[in-house]
Design a protein around this nucleic acid. Structure first.
Lengths: 212, 212
DNA sequence: CAAACGTACTGAACACTGTTCAGTAAATCA
DNA sequence: TGATTTACTGAACAGTGTTCAGTACGTTTG
């Protein structure tokens, strides 16, 4: 009897609908102003129904969180065509910035908010490889750069953390608006995204000078 | 007649009491779980009273925000004894990390949350020099380092932004818990603060190699 | 001295939030 | 047909930031 299967299919579809509604509201209004009631209204169900498919709001965030990492890896897709590891590292930084600027709320979800992480903790040993994969790409690229003479005498993992931190810092200071509130920037009336690009290129120059 | 003055004094005291209560609740439970009603209860006044002294919750955040910058500059106090600019830059980084770890919620208020910034925007040309002063200290130190042969051919402001971003990235990835969720760290069981220190020292090494 | 005024404060409400749970209606099974 | 399971919901709970009419009281004026 395909009845139970049909029901199962319907349940899965509804779960997808919830996530789709959440994603849509979330990307156009940010997470802060997306409530369970908003999502429920969009899919034309009662708010209580959502709790039959998701334990709580954080579980919904977490699903979007995972989607975000997949998207980031998509952004890293362009790197496959770049043979030289240092050029790849440079392109990776640019892709990271592009991702952060084009998906500001998703970025916040992935790397700033603490709620989705708490959910990762609760489901130990679950398939949470998306996040690691993104970091592994960086780790491998840095290691390849070292074989080409870059970052000699520097610890691979540590230097990768530093690079990630720099990128993360640049992106969050930009998107949160803090970069634009520094007097130097505020008074000069300089374009904030140009400043971000300039700062990144300066960082690339820094790394370039770290070649043996 | 000193009556009106006495009243004025009392009003100012109450405003300080509100801020003190907010600061206390805030530092021990974080901003998320500090409500206007909590603050009101602590000072034994009605919630509505708070709105006679502060326009809204963001204005209270902003006052704590300012205090935070003063505290950060206090942390930078140790730098006055360091003559060599590069040593001073190194010490500055350590002080920044110490500040961020010892005042995690205040740090979030100052450099992560967007609400206090919105209040800065509303009161244009107000005395908002605390934030700039902290950045100027960095800017000047970097400039001095350049005179000693460091960061040659690099743009002072850009390199300062990069350094700030790196520090900010390290601190926020640490305090938000994201650093601890990278597979490499999670599996190795490495102490997270040791990792942060190591990463910072690696960053110092990077900068050391940027001497002409 | 009494009436008018101004200030400081509050209770109660509004419109939200995430979340729970008893109850209902319909589909399925025995 | 009757019992059971499934899917769903209305209403409530406890909380949030914020507003506003109303009160109580000290000060000023006639």
């Amino acid at each position: 009897m395909g009845v139970v299967e049909r029901k199962q299919r319907h349940k899965e579809e509804l779960k997808k609908d919830i996530l789709a509604a959440a994603r849509e509201l979330f990307t156009e209004r940010g997470w802060e102003s997306t409530s369970i009631r908003n999502i429920a209204e969009k899919i034309e169900y009662s708010p209580a129904t959502i709790y039959l498919y998701y334990k709580d709001k954080n579980e919904i965030i977490f699903d979007l969180h995972r989607e975000g990492f997949k998207l980031l890896i998509d952004y890293f897709g362009v790197l496959k065509g770049v043979a030289d590891p240092f050029e790849r590292l440079k392109a990776m930084g640019r892709a990271y910035i592009r991702f952060a600027l084009e998906n500001q709320d998703t970025y916040k979800l992935m790397f700033v908010m603490e709620e989705p992480l708490r959910h990762v903790e609760s489901c130990v040993a679950q398939d949470w490889n998306e996040g690691d994969r993104a970091f592994d790409i960086l780790l491998n690229t840095v290691a390849e750069c070292q074989q080409k003479g870059y970052f000699k005498n520097l610890h691979t993992a540590n230097i990768s953390f530093v690079i990630w931190s720099t990128m993360h810092g640049l992106c969050t200071l930009r998107t949160s608006g803090h970069l634009g509130h520094v007097g130097l920037v505020r008074n000069s009336g300089m374009d904030i995204d140009l400043l971000l690009t300039n700062a990144y290129e300066e960082f690339v120059k820094m790394m370039e000078q770290l070649k043996a």
